[in-house]
Design a protein around this nucleic acid. Structure first.
Lengths: 347, 347
DNA sequence: AAATATTATGCAACCGATTACTATTTAGAA
DNA sequence: TTCTAAATAGTAATCGGTTGCATAATATTT
């Protein structure tokens, strides 16, 4: 099997009797080449099947036109939406993406960061994995002036650029809604409190209790992972309480779905006995019974904003350090799982 | 803000008074360097904060040590598992991945293929989007002897390397199980029959009917997309039938979950009135009521096999063209949604 | 018509690592 | 001790674009 030799600008230059400099400029539509040669060269490149060698280009120009995206996971529709938002903006601006995910592990996150660094990405968009304790593995980017935008899972106190929702408010709204539905003993199932998203939501939960003269009870807070077995364990922990709660605010829709399943299997009626509010507005919420009340997490918007700000910074038309934090609107979506007042029983 | 200059092998060579050739060899642990200089050089590289310039390396060696992965989508746990399998094998072999997804669109798939091609990946692993009609955009890889392994969504008649399950058998098993449960009028909700996975499952469905003396009825087959609104439409189409079916084989778990929801909302009891079998063994199947009977799709295994075969081919210890098709085992997982015989009613 | 400005192109160094080939040193064999 | 082979290391060309600077060609101004 023989392989056709790769066409280079030298081949094009030879064929047309011009210099490689002219070819290079023409292919980039550099205005210091005449329109006629530009057309001639582009036509020839096309007909010869030329494809640019990005390594040579990046080596020389020290630019890759590539953005690295570090995701904590990629199994939720939230993350998929974020990605879609990033892709939309990036492709419009002719930036390529390298997408990596850390499977919720710092170790992998560090490896991923290193890889992106070695691949010389021009910028980074990242969401932290659940056990990340510090941002030292992002220092390498700052040392080289490679901009980083965090989204969703961030360190709120750092002054890095970030795109988030108001998790405190969302947690508050979710809890207040349960209270408004008549719940008086509200449990909270959440995940690693190292992560801003979860600690903030919990802060909102506490504040809502406080504002409604309900006592915060540590025994009603369950901290677990986000996988099926974690959620099952969390549900069992709830079931083991001496007095069952009459409402649960769960920080993730998939978890909420699993918890609901376990509770239903134990004969509990939702929302009559226990009302449930989830978080994320994942697809899953619409196919469980009862349908899940949740917080809509505007992933597509977040992705667009993150990519937009990063790329504008790269282009020099915007300075990321000026507005470090962008807060995107989120909102409560009320479905059946929390409607205690109008409760028709579900099994 | 000043940026430290990038360290190159020239800097290391200067510092130690050796040639760049020696440095290059030492960093690669080439045995034609003495152990002592090798140690000296690696230590110096480490202390100077050297990082290899992959562009220079790839430019010169014409190898990228990178595998491109084209996914039709990335929102199912099946795809996530495949990815995990690929990543496991690739990282063990020190290959990098570039993951792209086509959002079920040929147009995007073509762009993605082109991008991977221009990035000069050493090999490709791909699953086709729902409307791909031919493999012409993969021709470019073959022309350059870049190996491609397809998985899941493939062209079965082509002799490209591929990793699949026996979709015919799975469709047969799913349908036979419904028949065994007493169903006599079985509908089938599926997606683009251009895709082998769906057409083969349907072939299995038909064959199972035939083998059990049940007539195939075109009106009982609904072809739709895989999104929520598509599934809703499919369910409504079922509900609009003059005579309702007593069983449905649905080619995707998420669709099945949505369909179940719509049917339940219409007052139909599952599995008593209609028994349901899904496909994929997605997480969602465990949190719907009743829990979903489905076909387990061994994504992790498929990913591992695809990556393994590709990398071995790249290393020259294996020839992909020798065993073009690998079939991975799949199996029926029986849960509640299909158990008509032992039916306790679910609402 | 001469002087100046503008436009288009070429020259050649450069980005950083790899590697075929050559040279030197050292060890082992005769 | 002399010669050959093996072990190390160096030289320099190469991968394919990019770009500052110089030059030539053409247009504009005076």
């Amino acid at each position: 099997m023989k392989v056709k030799k790769e066409i280079t600008i030298y081949d094009i230059a030879d064929k047309l009797g011009v210099s490689t400099a002219t070819v290079s400029r023409a292919l980039k539509n550099n205005p210091s080449t005449s329109l006629s040669t530009r057309k001639k060269i582009n036509a020839m490149a096309e007909s010869m099947g030329y494809r640019p060698n990005l390594f040579a280009s990046s080596l020389r120009s020290q630019k890759t036109h590539t953005i690295g995206v570090i995701l904590h996971e990629l199994n939720s529709s939230f993350i998929t939406s974020v990605l879609a938002g990033i892709e939309k903006i990036a492709s419009e601006a002719k930036y390529n993406l390298i997408i990596v995910h850390s499977a919720e592990s710092v170790a992998l996150e560090e490896v991923n960061a290193r890889n992106l660094f070695n691949k010389r990405v021009d910028g980074v968009i990242a969401s932290l994995s659940s056990d990340t304790e510090n941002l030292s593995h992002f220092q390498q980017f700052q040392n080289k002036n490679i901009p980083v935008v965090f989204f969703d899972r961030v360190f709120e106190k750092s002054d890095d650029a970030k795109v988030i929702i108001n998790n405190f408010q969302a947690g508050y709204d979710a809890t207040a809604h349960l209270i408004e539905q008549g719940c008086r003993r509200i449990a909270h199932i959440t995940s690693s409190l190292k992560r801003n998203v979860y600690s903030e939501r919990m802060r909102g939960y506490k504040q809502a209790l406080l504002d409604n003269n309900l006592k915060f009870d540590e025994k009603l807070v369950v901290v677990e992972g986000l996988k099926e077995e974690d959620a099952t364990r969390a549900a069992k922990q709830i079931l083991a309480l001496k007095t069952l709660p009459d409402g649960i605010f769960i920080t993730n829709d998939f978890c909420a779905a699993v918890v609901m399943q376990v509770l239903k299997d134990a004969g509990i009626q939702i929302p009559r006995d226990i009302a449930i509010v989830g978080f994320n507005n994942d697809n899953i919420g619409k196919v469980v019974s009862p349908k899940l009340t949740t917080i809509n997490y505007p992933g597509f918007e977040m992705g667009k904003v993150a990519a937009h700000n990063l790329i504008n910074h790269l282009k020099g038309v915007w300075d990321l350090s000026l507005s470090s934090t962008v807060v995107i609107k989120s909102e409560l979506i009320i479905r059946e799982s929390s409607l205690k007042k109008a409760s028709t029983s579900h099994k």
